[in-house]
């Protein structure tokens, strides 16, 4: 194989730096510094996932300016950031709804009625799993086991767990989201 395909070889030309790079408040920058301080300085790349979650919290998803920011901050190439981002289901490389409703579909939830919950959500929201509502409010997903098998069926809104679900409970949650007064209990730090 010719040399240029070896992974450690530098790119033949300077990677083109996109014009737009995300900017964050000093408070967020300090938070990011805190994450970087956890790893040896020459291993900054380790902060990739923690930084992606912060970018997503601030910008809704991992957009191009966000990717450019991370590449810049970690001293890696844009493609390195994409390479990592596309592996992980919780990293959004497309915009996601404000309320990401994620229903577990794995065995214990399935035998405890997860199918009904998904159907109910799909009907109420008018979208199928994998889709985002036209107003950008909701994304509906079916996901794999989230560690609530003993309190099945379950769903997550963002990072919040909702367990032992009934359709009434689901309605309460979705109503709160629709009214805009759903309070996220868990936040990315």
């Amino acid at each position: 194989m010719s040399q240029q395909f070896l992974p450690d070889n530098p790119l033949p030309q300077e990677a083109k730096v996109p014009e737009e790079i995300a900017r964050f408040s000093p408070a967020v920058e300090a938070e990011i510094d805190g994450h970087l301080a956890k790893y040896p300085p020459e291993r900054r790349r380790s902060a990739m996932l923690p930084l992606m979650f912060i970018v997503q919290r601030e910008r809704g998803w991992l957009d191009k300016p966000g990717v450019a920011y991370i590449a810049n901050r970690l001293g890696v190439r844009i493609t390195d950031v994409w390479e990592t981002a596309t592996f992980y289901s919780m990293i959004y490389t497309k915009p996601a709804g404000k309320y990401h409703v994620q229903i577990c579909k794995t065995l214990s939830c399935k035998i405890m009625g997860a199918g009904n919950i998904t159907e109910h959500c799909a009907q109420r929201l008018g979208i199928k799993p994998g889709e985002t509502s036209a107003d950008g409010k909701f994304t509906l997903s079916e996901v794999e086991c989230l560690g609530s098998c003993g309190t099945a069926p379950m769903l997550q809104v963002g990072f919040d767990f909702h367990e032992n679900l009934t359709t009434e409970k689901v309605d309460e949650i979705l109503d709160a989201c629709a009214r805009g007064d759903y309070k996220f209990a868990v936040k990315v730090r």
């Binding site: 956890k38 790349r45 380790s46 990739m48 979650f53 794999e144």
Partner: peptide, 27 residues
């Protein structure tokens, strides 16, 4: 001791994949 986050990949429970992920790579 520091916390570190995964991002939704079962394979990152396998110890060597976990270490790749902790280094900021694909798992």
């Amino acid at each position: 001791i520091y916390t570190h986050t995964g991002a939704g990949a079962y394979i990152c429970g396998e110890e060597t994949a976990l270490l790749s992920s902790l280094e900021g790579m694909r798992g």
